[in-house]
């Protein structure tokens, strides 16, 4: 009878993730975080007025991101988008910690993929934990498109970011609403495919994108290119994020501190 005890203990241990088979193992844990955030969001029907938040790079600052997510609870936002670099090493455990944090947030939380999330088996881990790297959805009459702009990680193949996919996603926008895009590396940065900077900026201008959100540089900045506003969020250890208020035609982007 007593020989069952170690077996039971072992089973318990496996279920509480005490064992790690490899740093990049792709098993168990939270799955499809983005899709489940969207399900939560769709239950919350919004009119033409709503708010959302944009969180910067997390990397090695997970405790600060816990504070950020707590602060979000008192801001009356419908959802939040994290701008990539969820992890520092792309390890399965870091993915677990961050997916758990976003899953438990008081508001639906989505994330784009960053360059630090693509190391080792990072891409597979992102697909497992968060879902496809390209995602388009509608909320409050506006359209939101998340995509992968980490060109350097793929060796600048010429199709990262995938402008054709972006073009069709932007083309399906409902009339009257705003268009918002989200990707980690901002166009014009050396880690963004130089041959795609102008085409991307042109594409976003043609489709009347209201704001293009980014991370990667770790420092807040904003400018306008061909009539499109570009915002880069501070990385999370600087204790700030972006709060976006949409009221009909007007869109206000505010940097708030916590």
């Amino acid at each position: 009878m007593r020989s069952w005890v170690p077996c039971l203990l072992l089973l318990l241990c496996v279920s509480c993730d005490v064992f790690e088979l490899h740093p990049y193992e792709i098993r168990g844990g939270v799955r499809d975080t983005n899709a489940r955030a969207l399900e939560r969001l769709q239950r919350n029907v919004s009119g033409g007025s709503f708010r959302f938040a944009v969180l910067g790079d997390i990397g090695v600052y997970q405790d600060d991101s816990v504070d950020a997510v707590k602060d979000l609870a008192r801001r009356d936002v419908d959802f939040v988008v994290q701008m990539g670099d969820l992890t520092e090493f792309s390890s399965a455990q870091e993915y677990d910690w961050v997916a758990g944090l976003l899953e438990d947030a008081s508001v639906p939380a989505l994330a784009v993929i960053g360059n630090h999330d693509l190391l080792g088996k990072g891409r597979e881990l992102y697909l497992h934990r968060f879902g496809p790297t390209f995602l388009a959805f509608e909320h409050g009459g506006s359209r939101f498109v998340l995509f992968d702009s980490n060109s350097r990680e793929y060796g600048f193949p010429g199709n990262v970011p995938d402008l054709e996919q972006l073009r069709s996603a932007l083309g399906e926008a409902p009339g009257g609403g705003h268009l918002f895009t989200f990707s980690h590396v901002p166009p014009g940065h050396p880690d963004f495919d130089g041959s795609l900077t102008e085409p991307l900026e042109q594409l976003q201008a043609e489709h009347g994108v209201t704001v293009s959100f980014h991370g990667h540089t770790h420092r807040f900045s904003t400018d306008a290119r061909r009539g499109v506003r570009y915002f880069i969020a501070d990385s999370i250890e600087l204790h700030s994020y972006l709060l976006v208020t949409v009221e009909g035609e007007s869109v206000a982007v505010e940097q708030v501190f916590f």
Partner: peptide, 13 residues
């Protein structure tokens, strides 16, 4: 990665 994340984020890790 566990050591680095623990030193930076003891309450999460």
């Amino acid at each position: 990665y566990r050591i680095v994340q623990f030193l930076q984020n003891p309450s999460t890790v």
